[in-house]
């Protein structure tokens, strides 16, 4: 199985260790994982700002980089949502359609495609609060959102349940957006920061030592918020936990 690894731009720059953990984790399953060298971004910053025209060349580059793989895997629900649902600034050629359909977020790839039933190398004896990125939750169906009358499920919590020693704590507002919102975080700073503060207080009140998420962008915003408030929270990507990171 040939897998193309997509490392989102902000992760490339700020969180290389998450990319490394993702690569290592995928290789544990005997996959042929390639990191196409000329990758940059999925186009989301432009598209979410309404600037589809400005995103076209970036989207085209993404498709050129990731054509021909059986799967494209990204450790980000947000970027995966962009590729799968919103990559429409370019003509929908068979190549484009195929790349979009084969792009998976890491958690769903492990849960739905590989159907991993154990992570014997992983142990994380800590109280953990799980943060659902909104695009992961409501956009690509990571879990049952609290607004809907439907049976509960959560792919990330299913995976975390297989990690030894990990204890999940409940938030008072489980699906509340943290306020990152892409460019929202810089164009609407007052509300964004307030939402971030409220979110990290919720994690702390729930008794979490670590916040775990499949999206580094939300966590970058939340970490900045927690540091500003002086809250002793730590943040770690689910790829790192599943790859057996020690605290």
């Amino acid at each position: 199985m040939r897998v193309g690894l997509f490392i989102p731009c902000y992760m490339d720059a700020f969180e290389p260790e998450v990319g490394i953990a993702t690569l290592e984790l995928l290789r544990r399953f005997d996959l042929d994982v390639t990191y196409p060298f000329d990758q940059t971004c999925c186009g989301q910053p432009m598209v979410n700002t309404g600037c589809h025209e400005e995103a076209a060349a970036t989207e085209a580059l993404f498709v050129r980089n990731f054509s021909g793989f059986d799967y494209v895997v990204a450790p980000s629900g947000s970027c995966t949502h962009q590729v799968r649902e919103h990559m429409t600034a370019i003509p929908q050629t068979p190549d484009v359609v195929a790349v979009r359909a084969r792009t998976y977020e890491l958690v769903e790839f492990l849960h739905d495609v590989l159907k991993v039933d154990a992570f014997p190398w992983a142990e994380f004896p800590h109280r953990v609060s799980y943060h659902n990125n909104c695009n992961a939750l409501r956009g690509i169906g990571h879990a049952r959102p609290s607004e809907l009358h439907a049976p509960f499920y959560s792919k990330p919590l299913d995976l975390l349940a297989k990690v030894k020693g990990l204890e999940v704590v409940e938030l008072a507002r489980p699906d509340e957006c943290c306020g990152f919102g892409g460019t929202f975080c810089v164009f609407e700073p007052a509300v964004s920061a307030k939402m971030g503060h409220d979110k990290v207080r919720d994690h702390a009140r729930a008794g979490a030592a670590y916040v775990v998420s499949a999206d580094s962008s939300c966590m970058m915003h939340q970490r900045g918020s927690a540091e500003r408030l002086g809250l002793p929270l730590k943040f770690i990507h689910i790829a790192q936990v599943l790859n057996g990171a020690a605290a």
Partner: peptide, 8 residues
């Protein structure tokens, strides 16, 4: 633009 597009 006064939205995070969270979808709730």
């Amino acid at each position: 633009f006064s939205s995070t597009l969270n979808g709730s």
